[in-house]
Nucleic acid binder design. Structure first.
Lengths: 357, 357
DNA sequence: CTGTTAGCGCGTTCAC
DNA sequence: GTGAACGCGCTAACAG
């Protein structure tokens, strides 16, 4: 096969095939159930029944059909199937910030679990929450069987989904005033656990690195932490908001440390921000972690376990949570009248080494 | 709304709604083009033309139709549309190891670019490469318009895809003997760049932390590095294979350091393994990086830039690469006779601080 | 158990 | 410019 090598203007090397193999191109129409029927000498509906779960069909004809089917490489067309059964075996998954290190694990698990149940994933990776409305348009048009959302939905959006009768499960999100099926990692228990340990170890001057105001998990964790501190008689704890990024964690700790003399402990609402905070302490402030200052996180993401950080944290039981989400969704696809249900999981304490105990 | 709180055996708290709002359930059939036609007092085909790109329709009737359409909340059904136009506006994306920190960025970008073109993503996150065959079954059945694969495909699989006439673009993968459209970050240039700099700085005793044998990128990088070293008269460079994980990088460096006296420089074929190697050097071997030993990586993933690591590396131009992949795919969806083409991009050197220069 | 028939919702000729 | 009629590929009643 003839090739030509050249360099284009912007330094991109290209290799272009100048001849095309005409045989390999599939203008071959896919085999339909009619083709199979003709070849097997039966009716089209007999073919259909062969591929249906409980289709009543005689072993003899079944054999004939299957033979023709494999010979023609026949597979039932999912589109036509879905059009009539009103089941697409498609689930839409909304993920708000894929680059945030905790979500790839969540997505991978959800995908695996759904694939095991022979369901396909229609992925919507949001860059801005504002995209949701246009995404929902697509979702209606595609007749997905259900939705798993790790992105925030407002009341109108939830209402729209209900109106369309599409089952949904929220993942670590709340949904305004509607009672909506959801799985949730209980931040309250986790934050209290962390702070109790910090208090017991003698920490007295705290700061909280929170998330953006519109983050439900972030807010719950912030409030839980502050509430526990107030209970312990510690008030006026400074709060700095980040955006769940490394950089924001690093900046936050610099800001708060300068404004807070004798800062003891930094409570971050996510591991990545905790990692940023640790680096901020070490490289920007010249502090030793945990000797001079303690930093704790939340999530249990992979990098939090790396030797250079070993973040003291709460690990979300991702596997159990995603399994619950998928199961709840499937149940509601089977029976849409099922009531809303909220399953909340408690995370596990990860000792790490970023906090002094 | 009545609720009941209880604790289940395994410590999972549940909140269950015991009554259901019967009004909210959408047994309401979606509006079809016929419904709109009836309400607007026109024919169904008129409605169809209203929503078609270049449909010839009188402004007056168009107005009537649109009014009825919005009133009924009508949206063309994507399934029926696809069944007849043979265009699903669906692209399958294969990703082999979502948890590997470089891919979330790739996936997010691909998703964004496709969404911008009004195309939906059917995600297949592989846990084992062996799953591909069963995944392809699903792909046939769903009539996707195209495939972007960041997972390895063998000759038979590529042949099958060709036979089905489905355009495909490979992302950082090769495809056996077939010439297949692909985008690629040129490892050779990158590795040579890194090694030239290491040599210039006086490094002499190298080790390579490679990927698994079946990883095309991993192998290309390993070979490129070794080739450059041989050119420079450095032979018998030890190679240890990892699996692109942090742990494997850490273990690899421990193994190779023990077996190689006066080890100078560790060349890792991925950033995450480089991070593992750095931690291995620091925490397992008690070496200072980069004073005692240099470590370089490849990819330019986010965590590689974190202060505690600052990995010297080559950053893949993810944005341009994904844009190229999407563009190539779209071109081939429009015109399937387009010849195969390979676009290779060169990465940018990231100085970092994990190597002594 | 089998074949015939009637749609699922829509795009697309083709006469008018 | 418009509507009637057909068909995409399939499942689901129904009669035999």
């Amino acid at each position: 096969m003839a090739k030509s090598d050249r360099k284009s203007e912007d330094g991109i090397k290209q290799t272009v095939a100048t001849s095309v193999d005409p045989v390999a191109f599939g203008s071959v129409r896919r085999a339909t159930s009619y083709d199979v029927a003709r070849m097997a000498g039966v009716s089209q509906s007999a073919v259909s029944r062969c591929f249906a779960p409980g289709g009543s069909i005689a072993p003899a004809t079944r054999a004939k059909v299957m033979k023709a089917a494999t010979e023609l490489g026949y597979r039932p067309n999912a589109l036509a199937q879905a059009l009539i059964t009103r089941r697409t075996n498609l689930v839409a998954v909304f993920i708000s910030r894929l680059t945030n290190l905790h979500y790839p694990e969540v997505l991978a698990e959800i995908s695996r679990q759904l694939t095991d149940r022979d369901i396909r994933v229609l992925l919507f990776a949001l860059t801005a929450e504002s995209e949701i409305d246009s995404i929902l348009e697509q979702v209606w048009r595609h007749d997905v069987d259900g939705i798993i959302s790790a992105a925030r939905l407002d009341n109108d959006q939830i209402a729209g989904i209900r109106r369309h009768g599409i089952p949904i499960v929220l993942y670590n999100r709340t949904a305004g005033e509607h009672l909506t099926p959801s799985v949730w990692c209980d931040s309250t228990t986790g934050e209290r656990d962390l702070i109790d340990r910090l208090l017991a170890a003698g920490h007295r001057r705290f700061a909280v690195v929170a998330g953006p105001e519109d983050s439900a998990v972030g807010e719950e964790r912030r409030q839980a932490a502050l509430a526990r501190l107030v209970e312990a008689g510690i008030v006026d704890t400074p709060v700095v908001r980040g955006d769940f990024s490394y950089a924001s964690g690093r900046e936050a700790v610099a800001i708060v440390a300068n404004a807070t003399p004798s800062l003891d402990a930094v409570v971050c609402v996510s591991d990545v921000m905790a990692i940023g905070a640790i680096d901020g302490c070490r490289f920007d402030l010249g502090l030793r972690v945990p000797d001079d200052i303690s930093v704790v996180g939340f999530d249990g993401s992979d990098p939090a376990g790396w030797m250079s950080y070993q973040v003291t944290s709460i690990r979300q039981p991702v596997r159990r949570m995603t399994a619950a989400a998928v199961q709840m969704l499937m149940e509601r696809i089977e029976d849409p009248t099922l009531p809303a249900e909220r399953r909340s999981f408690v995370g596990a304490f990860v000792p790490g080494k970023s906090a002094r105990f």
